[in-house]
């Protein structure tokens, strides 16, 4: 149940970043957040890089959710 709630929250936060609802987040989307979040551009870029597991420049919901899970200490795998 906790996992379910966390996934739901991750989904919600994902759509905050993915304004155009493309289904993925780019670095450009991330940079747009710097107006709203108290993070520096290079911090946002570092966050993006650490969430973008396969490093293809597109942050998927799965990658985002997994990152959110590790922030919460929840493992969604398995």
């Amino acid at each position: 149940e906790v996992q379910q709630m966390a996934k739901q929250k991750a989904h919600e936060l994902f759509s905050v970043c993915d304004i155009e609802q493309k289904g993925f987040i780019t670095k450009r989307d991330m940079q747009r957040l710097q107006n709203e979040l108290p993070l520096l551009p290079d911090q946002l870029e570092a966050v993006f890089d650490s969430l973008d597991d396969d490093g293809n420049g597109y942050l998927t919901l799965e990658e985002f959710t997994e990152g959110f899970g590790s922030y919460l200490g929840i493992n969604f795998m398995g």
Binding site: V16, E36, Q43, V47, S50
Partner: peptide, 29 residues
Amino acid sequence: KPGTAPGSEGMLANFFNSLLNKNPKGGTP
């Protein structure tokens, strides 16, 4: 996992914290 830079966990926490604060929906629809 490999490639996780030191300190990135704190940064992630910072990021998600800010995002959660920015989006304080919380309640059930």
